[in-house]
Amino acid sequence: MSRFWTRFTRQLGDAVFALLPTLPYARPEKPVCAGDAVFARGLTAGARTDGPAAFRDADFSIPCGCRTALIGPNGSGKSTLLRVLAGLVPPQSGEVRVAGFAPALGRSRVAYLAQRPQLTEGFPLIVRRLVQMGTYAHHGWFEECRHGDEAVDQALARLGLTELADRPVHALSGGQLQRALLARAFVQGAEVLLLDEPYAALDAASREIIERFLFEQGHAFTVMMATHDPADLARFDRVLEIRAGAVTTRHACAGHDHRHA
């Protein structure tokens, strides 16, 4: 009986979804990165569209697979730049492309990890389900998650969360939560990872797991990470600095093809 209902609701959901092909949700995107993963010309943006600009006329580009550190003093606009690239804040002027397209919501190839994720406190959710949320990008409206279990297991293992999979999310420490959110971005299939100071308030163990994930598997991702740690810069291929409203590139790196292309 319950199997009948599961099948029935699934099929009804699929039928309804088939009627709504234009919804900007879960568009399948082919993972092909060629040339520049991030490209900006004359980019001016502020934390709010109608507020003051944090930086003006920024020109930079980041080749596919390149790991970029984003540095600058507090309040210089690092978070704003990452939010513009993620599509959460529209630019005030200028041209910007991420993975070949103008930043927009509803894109599974771009993942963004906020400095302080605004999660509803005390929400009943286990870690596995949190990571599974990444697969929502590959499901349509009305569909329940039914594929992607392997990817979830793999992501949990790579970020050292397998034993915590059944823990409630609100019982996680800051570092464990950061790892779970990164696992979610991985499950999402994102190629461009925009990370806003992911190491803030992390213990050494969590930081090492995250670093291994980001830096020790070829150039599977294009990473752009805001950071304050000068000792860390050697790990990156390229450094972007925001200072006094200007964005300058300090290193350059050659492009890499994405390994899972």
């Binding site: 609701t9 009804l12 959901g13 309804v16 919804l23 900007p24 949700y25 879960a26 993620a86 599509g87 959460l88 919501l105 509803g106 894109r107 599974s108 771009v110 993942a111 963004y112 906020a114 994720p117 605004q118 999660l119 509803t120 929400f123 959710l125 949190l130 949320m133 929502y136 990008a137 499901h139 409206w141 009305f142 569909e143 329940e144 998650c145 979610r184 999402q188």
Partner: peptide, 24 residues
């Protein structure tokens, strides 16, 4: 509630990620 379960759950737990994925 059944049809929109995952959208409602995601939007209730993490609003920013929901809008990033386009779940409105």
């Amino acid at each position: 509630l059944r049809a929109l379960h995952k959208e409602l759950e995601l939007a209730s737990f993490d609003e920013e990620y929901a809008s990033l994925l386009g779940a409105r």
